[in-house]
């Protein structure tokens, strides 16, 4: 067990897999000589050489397509997108080719490709570079969507994503790269499609993932001081979604809040709410609450960005609503509520 940052854990996962299987290669903008835009591929060019760590032009549609072709012909590419915002110029390749070739070829082609890169807002990057796009890819049959929230999950899930024979959308938390955590040494994997209870509790279930999971855990910590015991469930894989772990938690707590970074309409949270009400109807003591980004493109101003983004006070307010508790005064900071 070593203490690693989230980016180091991802680096370790790729290196271990590439050492194990030489059909794996990494390709993307600045992954080689620049050592990665977010330094995730630090040292990999030196270790694996230019044939396996390939710098590309700024042409996402092109190199994403190259990755898909390589996967069809027997290699196992890891395609790094500098951020998932840039995937929008390559979305035709991902949605129309990566997601569908296996089915359309009657299973003659596998598609063992991982598209990875950071998602979500990272602070004053503006409307076009602050999006949380998991809902788009989760809506497409044929794609798996993975979103780790801790260094250990990042390593274990990326290893499994690389080994998967289907295309995996691997969305890293842009603000999680520096987060430190214990990571098991060696070849320890985390299966896709298995949620994890990140904090146990009895009064309310929060379902959240990626960066928002860390915010939810902060909120749970504050609520604990008010004797409200929150259980926090991290799906880790958005698709396929591990509903059963969520249902078990809600059946225990009878209340549910879903927290996500993206917008509310048609987002992953809506799907989770639909499934929970369907499967836990008789166990719900209150309507399920959602916390998500407000319905507006991300502003550049820091204060406005903070305003529309889910935060600890808004999560606390939602938990109190499902518990039928009076809401704290909006102007007070969460810490000031602690007695």
């Amino acid at each position: 067990m070593a203490r690693l940052s989230y980016r180091e854990a991802l680096n370790q996962a790729m290196c271990e897999e590439m050492e194990r299987d030489d059909s794996i290669f990494l390709m993307g903008e600045e992954v080689g000589h620049y050592q990665g835009a977010y330094k995730v591929s630090q040292g990999m060019l030196q270790k694996f050489g230019e044939k396996r760590v390939i710098d590309t032009p700024i042409a996402e549609c092109g190199f994403v397509g190259v990755g898909i072709g390589a996967a069809m012909t027997g290699l196992r590419p890891i395609i790094e997108l500098m951020t998932w915002n840039f995937s929008l110029v390559a979305i035709d390749q991902i949605v129309n080719n990566a997601a569908k070739i296996r089915l359309m070829s009657g299973g003659q082609f596998k598609m063992p490709v991982v598209f990875r890169g950071p998602g979500g807002a990272a602070g004053q990057l503006g409307a076009q570079h602050s999006q949380a796009l998991e809902y788009m890819y989760a809506n497409v049959p044929g794609l798996k969507v993975v979103m780790p929230s801790t260094p250990a999950d990042a390593k274990g899930l990326l290893k499994m994503a690389i080994r998967d024979d289907d295309p995996v959308i691997f969305i890293e938390g842009e603000r999680l790269y520096g987060v430190q955590g214990e990571v098991p040494d060696g070849d320890v994997v985390v299966p896709l499609g298995k949620a994890d209870v990140k904090r146990e509790g009895t009064d309310c279930t929060i379902v959240s993932w990626s960066k928002m999971l860390t915010v939810a855990l902060e909120a749970a910590e504050v609520l604990a001081k008010e004797n409200i015991s929150v259980e926090v469930v991290d799906p880790r894989t958005i698709k396929p979604l591990d509903g059963e772990t969520i249902y078990q938690s809600v059946r225990k707590t009878n209340r549910c809040v879903v927290v996500e970074e993206g917008h509310g309409f048609s987002n992953v949270g809506a799907e989770i709410v639909a499934r929970v009400q369907r499967n836990c109807f008789d166990d719900l003591d209150a309507p399920i609450e959602r916390v998500h980004r407000m319905e507006i493109p991300m502003p550049y101003a820091a204060n406005l960005e903070a305003m529309i983004t889910p935060d600890v006070p808004r999560i606390i307010a939602a938990v109190k609503r499902v518990m039928y508790l009076p809401e704290s005064k909006p102007e007070s900071k969460p810490q000031s509520k602690v007695e």
């Binding site: 009878n254 109807f281 008789d282 166990d283 719900l284 003591d285 209150a286």
Partner: peptide, 9 residues
């Protein structure tokens, strides 16, 4: 009677 599903159970 208005009651939550869980309250009924």
């Amino acid at each position: 009677v208005l009651a939550s599903p869980f309250a009924r159970k």
